[in-house]
Each structure stands twice: as structure tokens, then as C-alpha cells.
Design a protein around this nucleic acid. Structure first.
Length: 757
RNA sequence: GGUUGAGUAGCUCAGUUGGUCAGAGCACUUCGCUUACAUCGAAGAGGUCACUGGUUCGAGCCCAGUCUCAACCACCA
């Protein structure tokens, strides 16, 4: 044995041994209860970060249960990660001076698909590197045809249950990503902007967005506001364009903000939209989907929002309509991907009615069918969100993902707007009525980028019996026409991943599904409690009537040594793979567990990883000492030293004491694992091995072991082997390596050895 | 604005139902290369447990208030 533990010599070889031996693949045994964990799908094309390394928690549970003899399945998968992947891919395109608009959607899809395929293995290799005992024979990727077909089936089921509808309302739109988002995908950031006081003829208003004055349709005041009592019903005048608009009253207008008078811009503000609906006000747009000004005077047309704001302000100043400017601290919405300010946009989207799905999901947690751990904090979060849930916008205007399986007949819906590249690569964007006759249908379809169907458009879901293939919808049932295009909106990624427990296990007929569903534990960072966990519970109940997992364990966020969130821009990112290369996988894993209490942040530093590396080395050297004593005494095989038994001869009171302490340790570690207290479990093992066993007992044993005392040696082996077992889920490599080197009666590798009692 | 959590040694944090609870790791000081390990060992220094009151025989631990920080939720123009 080397003087120090060299992780590089062991890790790869040992992982291959485990995997090749099939230890990660459980045998379905109906007489036993399985233990199952779904790996939270990592983005298939994204390398791992420290957050992913926290899957260690799952590996600990899985290894522990495997050692207890449960048929144990840890199910891996990869996510296509719609927006995220397309966003990353577009950055690559930008480097080559290209953009998504240069390609038709089929070509773009193929390019992204190839990009993902190229990167898919990196992620998987890294998880193997970290020792995760996932059943790779059951790996699934979220865009596999069988998975996608099940997701589409769910959509059709929701639709026939009346839970899917198209709606036109203000949505969160990112002009850079070119897509709408659900409410969850929006960050709210505080910003100091300005509040501009403007003269609107007979009344003065205050606004933060002077560039939207062209889209104003009214000025609102609070009905109880005495200042404006006599002016309601009269007219205000938009400066610069001198358009007259009515002055109305509405409760939503706050008296004490600004002047108490609100300019109402239904097309570009959610609250204004609501007021507009209530008062049946018209809707005028002044910003288009690319974030540029439209329906405005020539001089502003095509300007980006911020530039337009400057220009408008200059002109307002000149016109004498700008009264004053105050600083304003407010929160604005920003795109969680690219940080661009979100523009509320009026557009048709596909929605899921979520209330009927949420109710059973609330009940399931209240009744304890799914337990959330730690309970106190996260159950509150869960209930709060679920009880106030709003309908879920599941359509995204991106290419990367399965298209919503709805088909429009162009002849029946001639007002559909179509954007496509003609045969010369020129971009055309027009209503179908204007394209008809000038372009062949084949040309439009071949170069198709996107379409926008008015909210009242008729569509076919092609869900008639026997028509399983989505592309089978080639003829309009109503007019018999064949100019049919599929919806170009794709599904929100979470619509797919929310069904993961069901789809990956092969619902409804597979053996796996029947045996492993519902799964035992779902472990994840709390930041996707709503995105993912809540959706899985809703879908699981909706589709199968049963929760997808019995326990939801929320783990913490990884931060740096100062407690700061890791980010590239701060330059404080610690890469788990690099650290694993430097100090060994076991050290990295232990760092993420040791001393980290439930739900609190995990602070990671080079120092801490090094300390855990030292612990791995300590374990290694205890092995060297015991083996050395064994050899020096001239023993050759495990049969030369009797196995420990309580009534063996020559036991001293120190021997008995450490055996007793070991028993206590085993009991306590097992209890703590049951309670998800990995911090306690790991600390107990650490303390016992280093301070109780090494510092005390080993020092005490030196004289006796040196003389070849069999009782003493059998105690050393007994305690040591049990320590290796207890530690194996946490530090699998060093323990397995030593296990292979010490003399013992058990033939099996440590990974499938029996958990001590 | 609402909600939740956190403030304990220089740093990162434990302290699970109030009574060896003042702790761990790192960092620090002194000594030690004793044939498992210097990726080590022995010894040691270091905290009015955010602040103020209260409950109690007894409070980091319970209650009230204050201050500071963090996260989540939210349509304040």
C-alpha cells in the first residue's frame, strides 16, 4: 500500500467494476419493497457544477438502501432544457455572426439537436466520475420519441378534459429570447429609475415609461379622489401627438402615488390591461415583439425602447410637457435566462387550467402522501404557491422542444400570420391571405419559422381514434383543404419534465412502472419546488391517481466560503470535477455533506475539501496500520485471525468498550440516515473513526498488535470493516479500494455488502 | 409591500423535546519526523451565543420588541 491514498489509481477502475458487474441495476423482486430515486434531470448538454455534485445525497441514500438489500433503482436522465439550450446555442451562433432568424425552424432544430448530441456524454461521464451509482441501462433523454409521445398524449387528455385553452392576454415576453414565459420564469429585480410627471392637458400624470404614451387610451384616477372628482368623464390630451383620451375612475388607481392620475396603456402593462378590460378600452400597441417602437411617428419608429424613451423625453421637454423628474425605486421583471427586461405583450398562448390539478396536489401533501422534508419551511412555501396558483402558460415561441400538437387549416384561418424564409432565403412575414397565390404552400412550409394564429382560430388536435401519428393530420376535416400547418409554439420544458416520473418509468403498462411507481424519494434544490416538484405532483396525480414520490427532500444551495452564491461573473465558482481531480471524489462528496444542516447553504472551499481529503487518507492509513500489524505477526490469510465474537478469549475492557461504541455508532448512523440527517451521520462516523478509533484505540493497540495478539487484531478488523461499511455511502471509492485489500471472509465488493446492524 | 429563515470562536457552521450546551472543521500558538498517516500527533489560546426586556429554580435554546442580513412571493404606474 502507498503511504498516502492516491485516488487517481482507484476511482475509474472501481467505478467500471461496479458498473460492469451490474450492481446499479436492480432485480425486480416482488417480495421486496423497492427503493427508488429519480435523478433530477440535468440539462443534457450542460457540464456539471457544484449544485449537481449534491446528487451525492441521493447516492448516499441509494448506496445505503442497496446495502440493506432493497431492490434499489436510481434512475438517470437528461433534459433537452428548451430555452436554456436554445439560448446557449444562439450565443454560439452569434459568435459566427448568425442568428436564429437566418434559418428555417427545421434546420435550426437539427443544428441544436446535433449540438446537444455532441455534448450529451460530457454530463454523463461527469456523473460517473463523481461515483453516482445510477442505473445507466435505464437512461432516458427527454426528447426520445416514446417519451415525447406520452407527453403529447397527456396534452390531448388535458384538452379533452377541458383543461387546455388558448388565451390572449398580457404575457411575460422577452424580446431577446423571442418567447413568452410563465410567471415563474421571471425574476423581479429592484431598480432605481425615474418617475416622470407629464402634462396631459387638463390633468397631470406620473409615469416611469414615457415611451409608451403613444399607446395610452385613457387616464385613470381613484373614484374617491376629491381632487379629480369633477374631471372624471372629461378628456385628457396625450402630449406630442395631441390625441384626446377619456379620464376614467377605477379602484386600482392609487391616490397617493405620483399625482394620483395614471396613464392607461393596456397593451404594455398588466394592471392597465385589467383596467382596460373592465372599462372596455381599446388596445393600442407601440412596441413590437423585437422591442422596437411601432404605430408611432416616423421619427420614433423602429427605435429600441430605451432609445425611444430618451427621444420622447427630449421632445416632451421641448414641448414643455415634462413637469419634473423624481427618482423611483421599483421592481422590474427580467428574463431569468438573459436578464433582459420583460415586456408585457398581448399575444395568444396555450394555457393549462391549473386549479383543478392543484387541488389534489395540495391534498396529497396535507394528507402526508408526499412528505416534504424539511417540512416546516418548504410545506409553507408549497401551500402558498399552490393555493394562489394561476393558469400555466405552456407555449414557448422557440424551436427547441416538441411542438404543440395542434394543426391549423390556413384556408379556414386566413388571418394566421406566417414568418418564413422564401426559396431565396428572404424573410417574409405576412398574413396567409396576403401570401396565398404568391407562394406555394410547399415553399411556405419548407421555410417556416413561426406562425401566430389569432386566438379564435380553429385547430385540430388530431386526436381521433387511430390517428396516433402527429403528421397524419394532412387534410382539414371541415373544408378538405390540405394547406395545414402545425402550431409552431413548443412546450414549456417543465411541461415535459413535470411528467418525468411517469414517462421515464414507462407509464402505464411497463413492469418498471408497476414496480417502482410511486418512487421513494425525490431530492432536489428548493429553487425548483414550483417549477418541477409541484408540477410532477400535479401530473402524477392527474395521470395515475397516485403521487410520484413519497418524500420530497429539499437540499441546500452551494455557496462559496464567504456564503456567496457562486457565479461566473463573481469568479468564485468551484468546479466539482476539478476539485475531484485534485483531492479525490470522496473528499468532494464529503465536503458537501459534512457539517451541512438541513436546508441551509452548503459552504464550499478549497480548505474544506482538503480537510476531507485528509480524512480519506486517515482511513487509508488505518488500513495500512492494521495490515502492517497483521503481516508483521506473520499471518497470511483471514483464517489466521478469528472473526470477532463477543465471547472470544483474550478481550480486554478496552476491546469491549470500542465494540460497544461501534454498536452505538451503527445505530445512530442508521437512525440519522432515516431522518435525512446526513450531516449528523457523517460527523459521527468522522469523529468515531478519527478520534475514537485511530487516536485512542489504535494507539492503545500498538503493543498488543505488535505481539500478534489475535483478540486485538480481530477487534481491529471488526471495527475497521464496519467503519468502511458505514462510510461507504459517503466515501465510496476509498472504502471500496481498502475493502479489496484487507483479508476477509466476505467475497462481495463493499457496494453490495451487508449494512451492519 | 407580504412571507420565511438567519444572526454562536478570526472564517464556515453544529448545537434535534430549555438543566455537562458553550462545540466541530479550517486558520492560529507551542512542542514533537514515536516503524499507519507531517494529508500526522500532543498540548493550547480564542465566544457577555446580535441587542433589550420577560417567563423559569435554570435560556443560544421559550415569549415580546429592536437592529442587521438573506431568500422567496407580489401588477405599485
Amino acid at each position: 500500500m502507498d503511504k498516502v491514498y492516491n485516488h487517481k489509481k482507484s476511482e475509474r477502475r472501481i467505478y467500471e467494476m461496479w458498473e460492469k458487474s451490474g450492481y446499479f441495476t436492480p432485480k425486480i423482486d416482488k417480495s421486496k419493497k423497492p427503493f427508488t430515486i429519480l435523478l433530477p434531470l440535468p440539462n443534457a448538454s450542460d457540464p456539471m457544477h457544484m449544485g449537481h455534485a449534491l446528487f451525492t445525497i441521493e447516492d448516499i441514500l441509494v448506496r445505503w438502501h442497496r446495502m440493506m438489500g432493497d431492490p434499489t433503482l436510481w434512475l438517470p436522465g437528461g433534459d433537452h432544457a428548451g430555452i436554456e439550450t436554445q439560448y446557449v446555442f444562439e450565443k454560439h451562433l452569434a459568435k459566427e455572426d448568425q442568428s436564429r432568424f437566418d434559418f428555417d425552424r427545421n434546420t435550426l432544430y437539427k443544428m441544436i439537436s446535433e449540438f446537444v448530441e455532441k455534448n450529451k456524454d460530457i454530463n454523463r461521464d461527469q456523473m460517473k466520475h463523481l461515483g453516482f451509482s445510477l442505473d445507466w441501462t435505464r437512461y432516458h433523454y427527454s426528447l426520445e420519441p416514446e417519451i415525447v409521445e406520452k407527453v403529447l398524449e397527456t396534452f390531448r387528455k388535458l384538452h379533452s378534459d377541458g383543461l387546455i385553452y388558448r388565451g390572449e392576454r398580457l404575457v411575460n415576453y422577452c424580446t431577446k429570447c423571442g418567447t413568452a414565459f410563465s410567471d415563474l420564469e421571471i425574476d423581479h429585480v429592484e431598480e432605481t429609475g425615474s418617475l416622470y410627471y407629464l402634462n396631459y392637458g387638463s390633468i397631470q400624470i406620473a409615469t416611469a415609461r414615457p415611451e409608451t404614451i403613444f399607446a395610452d387610451v385613457a387616464v385613470g384616477v381613484n373614484p374617491t379622489d376629491k381632487r379629480y372628482k369633477n374631471i372624471v368623464g372629461k378628456e385628457a390630451v396625450i402630449p406630442l401627438i395631441n390625441r384626446k383620451i377619456p379620464i376614467i375612475s377605477d379602484d386600482l388607481v392609487k391616490k397617493d402615488f405620483g399625482t394620483g392620475a395614471l396613464k392607461i396603456t393596456p397593451a404594455h402593462d398588466p394592471a392597465d390591461y385589467e383596467i382596460g378590460q373592465k372599462h372596455k378600452l381599446p388596445i393600442i400597441r407601440s412596441i413590437d415583439l423585437s422591442g422596437r417602437m411601432i404605430n408611432v411617428q416616423e421619427k420614433y419608429a423602429g427605435m429600441k425602447i430605451l432609445k425611444a424613451r430618451e427621444a420622447v423625453l427630449d421632445d416632451l421637454k421641448i414641448a414643455g410637457s415634462l413637469v419634473k423628474i423624481e427618482p423611483l425605486v421599483h421592481t422590474i421583471s427580467s428574463c431569468y435566462r438573459c436578464k433582459t427586461t420583460i415586456e408585457p405583450m398581448l399575444m395568444p398562448q396555450w394555457y393549462v387550467k391549473t386549479k383543478p390539478l392543484a387541488e389534489p396536489a395540495i391534498r396529497a401533501v396535507k394528507e402526508g402522501k408526499t412528505k416534504i422534508v424539511p417540512k416546516k419551511r418548504f410545506e409553507k412555501m408549497y401551500f402558498r404557491w399552490m393555493e394562489n396558483i394561476t393558469d400555466w402558460n405552456i407555449s414557448r415561441q422557440i424551436v427547441w422542444g416538441p411542438r404543440i400538437p395542434a394543426w391549423y387549416c390556413l384556408d379556414c384561418n386566413p388571418n394566421i400570420e406566417i414568418t418564413f424564409l422564401d426559396k431565396n432565403g428572404g424573410k417574409i412575414s405576412r398574413k396567409y391571405t396576403e401570401l396565398k397565390g404568391r407562394y406555394t404552400f410547399a415553399e411556405i412550409k419548407g421555410g417556416l419559422q413561426s406562425l401566430t394564429a389569432p386566438v379564435e382560430s380553429e385547430y385540430s388536435l388530431n386526436d381521433k381514434a387511430g390517428q396516433k401519428r402527429p403528421d397524419a393530420c394532412i387534410q382539414c376535416e371541415k373544408c378538405g383543404g390540405k394547406n395545414i400547418l402545425q402550431e409552431t409554439d413548443t412546450f414549456d420544458t417543465w411541461f415535459l419534465s413535470g411528467q418525468w416520473p411517469v414517462t421515464t418509468l414507462g407509464y402505464p403498462d411497463s413492469e418498471d412502472f408497476k414496480y417502482f411507481y410511486p418512487t421513494s424519494v425525490l431530492d432536489t434544490l428548493w429553487d425548483i419546488l414550483f417549477f418541477w416538484v409541484a408540477r410532477m405532483i400535479m401530473f402524477g396525480l392527474y395521470l395515475t391517481g397516485n403521487v410520484p414520490f413519497k418524500v420530497t427532500h429539499m437540499h441546500a444551495r452551494v455557496v462559496d466560503e464567504k456564503g456567496q452564491k457562486m457565479s461566473k461573473s463573481k469568479g468564485n465558482v468551484i468546479n466539482p470535477i476539478e476539485m475531484a481531480d485534485k483531492y479525490g471524489v470522496d473528499a468532494v462528496r464529503m465536503t458537501l455533506i459534512y457539517g451541512v444542516s438541513q436546508g441551509s447553504d452548503v459552504s464550499v472551499s478549497d480548505d474544506k475539501i482538503r480537510a476531507m481529503r485528509n480524512f480519506a487518507n486517515k482511513i487509508w492509513n488505518i488500513g495500512r496500520y492494521i495490515l502492517g500489524s497483521f503481516d508483521r505477526a506473520g499471518y497470511k490469510s483471514y483464517e489466521d485471525v478469528p472473526l470477532y465474537s463477543p465471547d472470544m478469549e483474550g478481550l480486554t475492557k478496552e476491546d469491549k468498550a470500542i465494540v460497544k461504541d461501534l454498536k452505538k455508532l451503527i445505530k445512530s448512523v442508521t437512525e440519522n440516515l432515516k431522518k435525512f440527517r446526513f450531516d449528523f451521520a457523517s460527523e459521527e462516523i468522522y469523529q468515531f473513526i478519527w478520534h475514537r478509533f485511530a487516536d485512542e484505540y489504535l494507539e492503545y493497540s500498538k503493543e498488543r498488535a505488535g505481539n500478534g495478539d489475535k483478540a486485538c487484531l480481530s477487534i481491529l478488523f471488526h471495527v475497521y470493516k464496519n467503519c468502511l461499511k458505514l462510510l461507504h455511502p459517503f466515501m465510496p471509492f476509498v472504502t471500496e479500494e481498502i475493502w479489496g485489500q484487507i483479508p476477509k471472509a466476505e467475497k462481495d465488493p463493499l457496494i453490495i455488502s451487508k449494512w451492519p446492524k
